[in-house]
Design a binder for these strands. Structure first.
Lengths: 240, 240
DNA sequence: CGTAGCGTTGAGGTATGTCAACACGGGTGG
DNA sequence: CCACCCGTGTTGACATACCTCAACGCTACG
């Protein structure tokens, strides 16, 4: 399932980076060859299975990570256990709150993910020296802020039906289409429980709204987790 | 009503800045004397009355502004008119989405506000040359992101009672106490309608919950807009 | 004194939550 | 191979928190 490359650890130059699909994306795209070579000495490529916790709320941050593949779920919980997903991260996002000693969220692998883990001091040292890198990190923060605010509208003002449509639309526009399926079809990276925590609804309501969208022909359901969208514009109309 | 100072435009040195309470806060705190002098040539001090629109969603951004006094309301509207407040800005925040050609929100003066208006090119030029400045802007963006995510929990998972308590707690911890009133008392910068748009509720529900908090002795109501909080910890308990 | 804007209160409706039963699918062990 | 179980998802019946609609109070202002 997972392709292991022998050549990675036998070389001085960051071969890993050369063959890395994120080389010119995310934070690595802001680095010069030299900087990349220096940074690569302290990075590790890591795989996590769906469900594994990557970072706990209010816990010290040991490292950052560049998301190479998969989806990360960021969430918060109230004392009594009520949970809210506050963000999703896709490749090539940087995982970890910059310049904080503690995480403000819990990060969990929503799907199987590949990460390029960067020790906290290594990235922060580089951040202080590379303005382009800091700029890119800021641009990501600003984009996440825009997304968070968009989602606040969904949480605060949309109906359950619109929330579910908005979620599916979000995923449809962020996920690669699955190979084996026709045109616009994708795997949901989140369980119904996760979706409900993202939307501020119950699993039952999410399930009912998905069934309804299916009944209305807006979406097709292949495999519970696999959704097809014949007409994205039609789905968009349901978003309110 | 509006204080106009004659000395502002008659001087080479930024007298305005020397006497400005935001001199060492917000973005100005990251600037050297020279930089400040250069920037001050293109800034204007502006007063806006409560209710005035400062920036429209999807409209080009002509300028940034440093908030000197008062509260700014950031909001978004759906096509059908449903509205959601997605953030509040207090002094010494920077108003305006950095590095965007268009605003992603509508900004409105929630109370009377004083602004230090900075033309877009002036600030962006300075941003590209001053790493400390860019750093400070990033820190604000990251803080706003944290706040937005905190608020997503409130919107998605809290009850109406908890939402209202959370709002009052937020304001109580962000506003200066009013002079004429006892210890912990403050003016609400938002109307009931604004509060309901912030909380994703109706005005009626907000009103009922405020009445309830008053009946329970958690808050006192002086003047509709003026609230007293005898015990902040007790209010905190109502936040869920 | 009348009107307009904002806030409060009440009565009743509805969307969503709650509780419970059931369906499906995948693993494990006989 | 089947029996069983467990996690996940769906569906139904009922409860309720919040919304909707409507009336009314208060204050400011002409």
């Amino acid at each position: 399932m997972q392709t292991v490359r022998k050549d990675i650890h036998n070389s001085e130059i960051p071969v890993l980076c050369q063959s890395c699909e994120a080389r010119h994306q995310g934070i690595c795209g802001a680095l010069s060859g030299e900087e990349l070579t220096a940074l690569a000495k302290s990075t590790r490529r890591v795989h996590k299975d769906a469900g594994e916790e990557l970072m706990a709320d209010a816990m010290p941050i040991a490292s950052y990570a560049s998301v190479l593949r998969g989806v990360i779920k960021l969430s918060k919980v109230l004392e009594d256990g009520r949970q809210q997903v506050v963000g999703l991260q896709f490749a090539p996002d940087l995982l970890g709150r910059p310049f904080a000693t503690e995480s403000r969220v819990t990060a969990e692998a929503a799907s199987d993910v590949d990460l390029c883990v960067i020790p906290k001091p290594a990235l922060e040292e580089l951040l202080s020296r590379s303005a382009p890198l800091e700029h890119r990190v800021m641009m990501q923060a600003l984009r996440e802020l825009d997304e968070a605010r968009d989602w606040m509208v969904t949480l605060g003002r949309k109906t359950a039906a619109e929330k579910v449509a908005s979620f599916l639309y979000l995923i449809a526009t962020h996920m690669d289409p699955t190979d084996d399926a026709p045109e616009t079809s994708f795997d949901l990276p989140l369980s119904r429980a996760d979706i409900s925590d993202f939307l501020g609804l119950t699993v039952e309501t999410v399930s009912r709204q998905i069934s309804r969208l299916k009944a209305d022909g807006v979406i097709g359901i292949v495999n519970f987790r696999q959704i097809s969208v014949p007409d994205l514009a039609r789905l968009r109309l349901r978003c309110g």
